[in-house]
């Protein structure tokens, strides 16, 4: 049987997010992210004033864009996109010019001081390739994060995007972001 094309993506049901930051901690532990840097984080949006008040939490990380501007500007091709849509940095080719950090509309990258290269969310591709879930997805206690293959019609992400309303952040940049926020 021929290998079917894959397109990994994350669907985020951010209304379930309780800002516990377990995803950020799990990611740091899994990927040895240095203190002071993060590959994923939670945005807080406050609205109104007491007693009419609400606060929204919205997890964010690399959007693994369809047309990643970071990969386009990279002068050595160190930033590249796998066939399954995961955007990665080949650390051996990264010269540390930080053009990709400037070009990322989501500021999802950080400069790794020790190696002098740029790091970012890998969608835990080392785990995914073994059939496991990304660390942030596995750990999320309120089940905000759903990981899966958009090309697989039986997958949960496929079902959610087919049946629920959703949005992506800053689509006007033309990057084609692949983090889907359910409404």
């Amino acid at each position: 049987m021929a290998m079917k094309k894959k397109r990994y993506a994350l669907v985020l049901d951010s209304r379930k997010c309780i800002n516990c930051k377990a995803c950020a901690v799990a990611c740091k532990a899994e990927n040895q992210v240095p203190v002071g840097n993060t590959r994923n984080w939670i945005n807080e949006a406050r609205q109104g004033e007491y007693p009419k008040l609400r606060i929204d939490f919205e997890p964010e990380q690399c959007h693994h864009c369809e047309h990643p501007s970071c990969a386009r500007v990279c002068p050595t091709g160190a930033t590249w996109m796998r066939k399954d849509g995961v955007v990665l940095v080949n650390y051996d080719d990264c010269i540390g010019c930080r053009y990709c950090m400037v070009a990322c509309p989501y500021d999802a990258r950080y400069f790794h001081e020790e190696s002098g290269t740029v790091h970012k969310c890998t969608l835990c591709s080392h785990r995914v390739d073994k059939g496991d879930l990304p660390a942030c997805v596995e750990t999320c206690p309120s089940k905000v994060r759903v990981f899966g293959d958009l090309e697989d019609p039986t997958s949960r992400v496929h079902e959610l995007l087919a049946t629920r309303r959703y949005r992506v952040k800053e689509p006007q940049t033309g990057n084609g972001p692949q983090l889907y926020y359910l409404l």
């Binding site: 386009r72 010269i95 540390g96 010019c97």
Partner: peptide, 18 residues
């Protein structure tokens, strides 16, 4: 550059979009 000695890699690649 984060790795100044890797600057030669600029000339082992050509990327017309960058």
């Amino acid at each position: 550059l984060g790795n100044w000695y890797r600057f030669y890699k600029l000339f082992t690649h050509f990327r017309w979009e960058s």
